[in-house]
Simulated scan of single mutants.
Amino acid sequence: MLPPTAQKKLQSWIRSRHLICSGHFFLFETVDYTTIERFSTCIKALGGTLIAVDSIGKIWIGDHRQVVLYRARASLYPKNHALKLYWLKYGSFRTRFDERI
């Protein structure tokens, strides 16, 4: 994946509140593990590393279905990366799943 494409994808996750910045790390939450793999590819394309992926619980989707919620933690090497500035402008301090847990 090319870096401009990876950056656009990460920006869309910031706007949808799947990706937040916490200190020097980027936290990504989703219920789909294949999305974690795409996130890892985007982070590596920008020169960062995926630190850990954890399942942090289950959430209800509808009345009869529970799904596993995954959280990935990544680090981008440049401290003042343009993505962090984008998060400051368009992002949030809470992910979209914070209300459900």
Rank of each mutant, 00 (worst) to 15 (best):
K44S: 13
T35D: 05
R17D: 02
H64D: 15
G47A: 04
V53E: 11
K58R: 12
K58D: 04
E29S: 13
H24D: 13
P3Q: 01
Q66T: 14
K8E: 08
R100P: 00
F28M: 04
Y70I: 03
I14R: 00
A72C: 06
G48Q: 01
C42R: 01
T30A: 05
K79D: 14
R65F: 08
I61A: 05
E29H: 11
Q7S: 07
S55V: 10
H64C: 13
S16M: 08
A6Y: 00
T41N: 15
K79R: 15
P78M: 05
Q66M: 10
T5M: 06
K44L: 11
L85W: 10
V53Q: 01
L10M: 02
Y86E: 09
A52M: 11
K79S: 15
A74S: 10
L85E: 14
T35N: 07
S75A: 14
T35G: 04
R65M: 07
E37L: 15
K84C: 05
A45E: 09
H81C: 09
R71V: 00
T30G: 03
S92T: 14
D63W: 11
I56Y: 02
Y90F: 14
F26R: 10
I61E: 15
G47L: 10
K44Y: 04
G57E: 00
L27E: 09
Y90S: 08
V31R: 02
F39H: 01
A82F: 06
I59F: 04
I20S: 07
K89C: 08
G62Q: 07
F39E: 01
L69A: 07
H18E: 00
E37A: 12
G23C: 10
T49V: 15
H18K: 15
F26V: 06
I101A: 01
T34I: 11
I51G: 05
Y70V: 03
L2H: 11
R73D: 01
E29C: 12
P4W: 04
S40R: 13
S55N: 09
I51R: 13
G91Q: 03
Y33A: 12
I20M: 01
L27Y: 06
H18T: 01
R96P: 00
S22T: 14
F97Y: 00
G23M: 10
G91I: 08
W13Y: 13
C42Q: 08
L85K: 15
N80D: 15
Q11E: 06
F39L: 04
L19K: 02
L69E: 02
K8V: 00
V53M: 04
G91R: 10
S92Y: 13
G23R: 04
Q11G: 08
K44V: 04
R17E: 05
L19P: 04
W60F: 14
I43Q: 02
Q11N: 11
I61K: 13
T35Y: 11
L88T: 09
L85V: 08
W60Q: 07
C42F: 03
F39A: 02
K79I: 14
P4M: 03
K8F: 08
K44N: 14
V31C: 10
S22K: 13
G62I: 07
R17Q: 06
I14A: 07
L83S: 05
P78E: 12
E99R: 11
L76K: 02
I51M: 04
M1P: 08
T35L: 12
P3D: 04
G91H: 04
S12F: 05
S40W: 07
H18Q: 14
R38S: 05
S16K: 12
L83M: 01
K79F: 12
A72K: 10
